[in-house]
Amino acid sequence: MFVRTVYATGDPAQLGAAVHALNTQGHDLLEERPGYRGAGVFIDRDLGKLLSVSWWESVEARHNSDEVMRARRPELLQPFAGTVAVENYEAAVLHAGRRTLAGGGLRLTRVEFAPADADLAADTFRTGVLPRLEDLPGFAGAALFLDRARGRGMTGVLFTDRGALVASRTGQATVRREGAAKAHVAVIALEEFEIVHADVRSD
């Protein structure tokens, strides 16, 4: 599958309005688009960050949805958003796991790599990293997103609750260090978010 991410930052006091708009008007808009396969909304209440991810069955479906969503996005994110960045990725690996409830946690790792190493990154995550993540208490799902042409990507690991997210930090740090070395990727950012909702239909 393929994904579009929207990363917005702004005034934490206005974050709730954006979340409400995405969960109501934004959800309805996405559901109407052909090829839509699910979405997630993740937030950092303290800093005022919002990450939304929409899932699409093809590049064409994602592209065709973009005209409508691009026109409506400013309205949905105001008055919260001061900055907005939109990116497109291939979902190279997906472990849908179990449905995660609001209040769970997401750990996001942004990586860079030589474009020629994209397959190595995917294979390493699928066969070496993911099985070890599954053993972490509270693991609820994971995915690897790749932009092969630009040599950029991100991994997202979901946990059932905030406690499990915090408790997993040491364990995932070891997996991350060893996986990055094997996959020849450079970790450029590490973030944590609260899950507002996360739902993807992988079948």
Rank of each mutant, 00 (worst) to 15 (best):
A8W: 03
T9I: 07
G10D: 02
D11M: 01
P12E: 06
A13S: 10
Q14E: 12
Q14V: 01
Q14Y: 04
G16C: 06
A17F: 06
A17L: 12
A21F: 03
A21C: 04
L22Y: 07
L22A: 14
N23C: 14
T24Y: 05
T24F: 05
G26T: 10
D28N: 15
L29C: 06
R33Y: 02
R33H: 15
P34D: 08
G35W: 09
R37L: 15
R37V: 10
R37N: 11
A39Y: 11
G40V: 09
F42M: 15
I43M: 07
D44C: 09
D46T: 14
D46P: 00
G48R: 04
L51P: 05
L51E: 05
L51N: 06
S52N: 06
S52I: 02
S52Q: 06
S54E: 06
W55Q: 10
E57T: 08
S58M: 10
S58Y: 08
V59I: 15
E60G: 10
E60Y: 08
A61P: 07
R62C: 06
R62T: 02
H63Q: 07
N64P: 03
E67P: 01
V68H: 07
V68D: 08
V68M: 10
M69A: 02
R70T: 13
R72A: 15
R73P: 01
P74M: 04
P74G: 08
E75G: 05
L76M: 00
L77M: 05
L77E: 03
L77D: 01
Q78W: 00
Q78K: 02
Q78H: 03
Q78N: 03
Q78D: 04
F80L: 05
A81I: 03
A81W: 01
V84S: 01
A85L: 14
E87I: 02
